[in-house]
Amino acid sequence: MPWPQNTPPQRDGDAAAGIEVTDDFERFTQRNDIFTRAFWDDRIKSKHTAKFFSSYRMEAAPRRGDGFTQRDFALRNAAWLISDVVSSRRAQEGIREGFQAAIRPDTPVAKDALEIGDPAKMSAEIKRIAKFFGANLCGITDMDDRWIYTSRVDARDMSEAPHDLPEGLTGVIVLGHEMDKELVTTYPSALAGAATGREYSHEASIVMQLAAYIRNLGYEAVPSMNDTGLVIPYAVKAGLGEYARNQMVITPEFGPRLRFSKIFTNLPLVHDVPKPRGVKAFCDICTKCADACPVKALPYGPPSTQTSNVSAIKGVKKWTSDAEKCFSFWAKMASDCAICMRVCPFNRDYSRHRNRLWLKLALGPFRKLALRLAGKHGGRRKPADWWAASSPGQD
């Protein structure tokens, strides 16, 4: 539905976050998410789509050479296990937790709420506890309802269903989970999909534990992964990174090599602010991700409001991919693809001094030099080489 005319779609702080919302803005309907459409939209459904989803069961996983052997699928599917357990526990009710509905809290809100005298100290505490449970990054922002989906999805028939979020939520805690760098170098492959699956399993555990901690303090906390709302604008507004041409958030710690999760809460917290450092200016001159995309799903040129299909939010000026082209490639491979992540010049190990120096160049007036220095950065590693390094003595 169109944004209410008496409510300006652009808000204070958007400019710093690099968010440009137009008068044509509409909140996104999750039923139009490309993965959900693959279950109901005949324009997306195909034999390849069925093969993609069935490959997450070993009896249906195809075998076709390096990166797609039984061992590769075995590791990928095992990596997804905890996430799968959580997402399937209410399947009979049409609730796919973490993907098409929020994760059900397993801890009641404590009757007596801890008095929060200093929200800034509580924010620091939440970030400490998030890292204790295993999150790599944590930022906090406001509950911006523009990024909340118009509805959730009933997984039984893919129809729209109302959210059951509690009233009075004021903030969003955004968590970043680093993907394994060595596995990312093997994209596209089923083996590389283990890097994705592992972080979904990690984030399922972490958001549930952190939400339980907050609920034990006497405050609402709703753990969330891909469900309920768009996480990227929350991550940017929480100061964790900047949006890039490859549709990812570039962070100074890990580049684009993260998954994000979130917790909706009414715990009194101080919100972080966006921290623009120059990623957009670099992406303006860099097209490595678009050049490397096998199906040309990533955009060239400057950000715009142009969208290719219904699997993109309307009324936001940004780089927008063609989700249908992207998912078609995933489906044919029977695994996810993150070539755009692998080849991104920001995809580096920033514990190394030379990469920190490169980052300084890339985010400053010498970005063209940084782009030239990137050269053939992001080359693919053979999955068999990953196995050989990790499993000495095995063929």
Score class of each variant (00 low, 15 high):
E253Y: 05
D227H: 01
A221V: 07
L240M: 04
M248S: 12
M248D: 06
P223K: 08
S224M: 14
L210W: 06
L217N: 06
A235D: 04
M225E: 08
L258C: 12
A238W: 04
I232W: 01
R259M: 13
T228P: 01
I250E: 02
L210Q: 08
A221C: 09
R257V: 15
P223N: 13
P223E: 09
L210Y: 10
E253S: 13
Q209D: 11
M225V: 15
N216V: 08
P256C: 03
I250G: 10
L217Q: 11
G241N: 11
E253N: 02
E220S: 12
Q209G: 10
V249P: 07
F254K: 10
L258D: 06
A244G: 10
P256L: 07
I232C: 02
S224I: 15
Y219N: 13
A212S: 15
V231N: 02
A212V: 00
N216T: 14
T251A: 10
L210D: 10
G229Q: 02
L258K: 01
Y234S: 03
G218P: 11
G241L: 06
P256M: 07
V231G: 02
A221H: 03
L217E: 07
L210S: 10
R259G: 13
K237H: 04
P256G: 07
V231H: 05
E220R: 14
P233F: 12
G241S: 05
V222R: 11
P252W: 04
N246A: 14
L210H: 10
G239S: 03
A221W: 06
T251W: 09
P256W: 02
P256H: 04
R259C: 14
D227M: 01
R215H: 07
E253L: 14
D227P: 04
Y243L: 10
A221Y: 05
F260T: 00
V231D: 00
I214F: 06
Y219G: 13
E253G: 01
I250N: 12
A221Q: 08
K262T: 11
S261P: 04
G229D: 00
R259K: 12
V236C: 09
Q247C: 12
M208E: 14
G241Q: 05
V222A: 05
M225T: 11
G255I: 06
A244R: 08
R215T: 14
M225H: 09
P256F: 07
Y219A: 13
Y213T: 13
P233L: 09
M248K: 12
G239H: 08
T228Q: 07
P252E: 04
Y243V: 04
V231P: 00
V249A: 12
A221I: 02
L230V: 03
I214C: 14
A221D: 03
S224V: 15
K262M: 12
A244C: 12
N216D: 09
F254R: 11
A221P: 05
I232H: 12
N216G: 15
N226F: 03
G241P: 10
